[in-house]
């Protein structure tokens, strides 16, 4: 019997790399790094195997949030230049595939963390995924210019999660680490929104510069920076980081303030927006340096007396 094969254009051409892109690897790397710092600076010691499982589950959970976010935001991603090449708007992955992928990873990461590490961290991970995918992506992002202020909580949980994995509890120290990222988020994203606001406006996302104007956004960036600079030093003041870290955090905080001040003084209608671009770039360095500082400080602390510190 003869069979006539036909070409089916609906069969997926998605590669593993496309599915990896759904996990937002760059965001995931920051999540892994801040969670690792929370895990390492927590009191007591966690065995390497449990530590590895913790970081793996937190990374996969963060990736699941990214996939669910890309599933829901495919319509606006298609409009914005920065996001138009993502796998769903580019047509390489069907929305249903991304949804299923995100849900399976979310379920697996939470259940594995609960069974193998502890249920407090699993509950926080589940809440984080829900907060980012449902509260932020489905509601806040399109509803209010305060979207990234409130939604920033989702990105602030990783160090608290790392701490909860290591200790099974949550204290004031991980809450401070949470607050550092929480207060850092608005100036970081609003600096980006200042020079990318046309893109956000075209997609109908109410980012602060589109709603309140450039001048108000610049004032609010400076206001949050005023809170962030001293907050970065608090770990040293509370005693869970050394004075060496405190000096580093103070220098970084003052530099953050300097960039925020330059952005505040930027002329309205400035097409280049160089100060805002510099603030955005420095904000990434700031967060990395603060958490790297905490990590190195914790590892080096036993050697300070030897070094004469």
């Amino acid at each position: 019997m003869s069979v006539t094969p036909t070409v089916d254009s609906t069969v997926s051409e998605a590669t593993p790399g496309d599915f990896l892109a759904l996990l937002k690897p760059r965001v995931m790397s920051l999540v892994v790094f801040t969670a690792l710092v929370g895990l390492v600076v927590a009191p007591g010691s966690i065995d390497p195997f449990t530590g590895f499982i913790s970081i793996l589950c937190i990374a996969i959970g963060a990736g699941a949030s990214g996939a669910l976010n890309m599933w829901f935001d495919a319509d606006i991603d298609a409009i914005m230049r920065r996001t138009a090449k993502r796998p769903i708007p580019a047509g390489r992955i069907q929305p249903g595939e991304a949804l299923a992928f995100g849900l399976v990873l979310a379920g697996f990461s939470v259940a594995t963390l609960g069974v193998m590490v502890n249920w407090l961290s699993a509950a926080i991970l589940a809440f984080t995924i829900f907060f980012y995918a449902v509260i932020y992506s489905m509601y806040l992002k399109r509803a209010t210019p305060q979207n990234i202020v409130i939604g920033g909580a989702a990105g602030s949980f990783p160090p608290l999660l790392g701490w909860a994995c290591a200790t099974g509890t949550v204290g004031i120290e991980p809450v401070i680490l949470f607050l550092i990222i929480f207060i850092w988020t608005p100036p970081h994203f609003w600096a980006l929104a200042l020079f990318a606001c046309k893109d956000y406006g075209a997609a109908g996302i109410p980012m602060m510069p589109n709603v309140a104007g450039e001048a108000s956004t610049k004032r609010q960036i400076f206001g949050y920076s005023l809170l962030l600079a001293p907050l970065g030093v608090v770990p040293a003041l509370l005693g869970f980081a050394s004075p060496v870290y405190g000096v580093l955090a103070a220098i970084l905080g003052l530099n953050f303030l300097r960039h925020a001040w330059n952005t505040l003084r930027m002329a309205d209608g400035d097409e280049q927006m160089t100060p805002a671009k510099r603030l955005f770039a420095f904000s990434i360095l700031y967060l990395f340096a603060i958490f790297a500082g905490l990590l190195i400080d914790h590892i080096a602390a036993p050697f300070y007396p030897v070094l004469g510190g």
Binding site: D8, T15, P16
Partner: peptide, 15 residues
């Protein structure tokens, strides 16, 4: 029956 294109076959193998 459907005939997969070389690209679809390659992507499926990688997946």
């Amino acid at each position: 029956r459907i005939q997969l294109t070389p690209q679809q076959q390659k992507a499926r193998r990688k997946r």
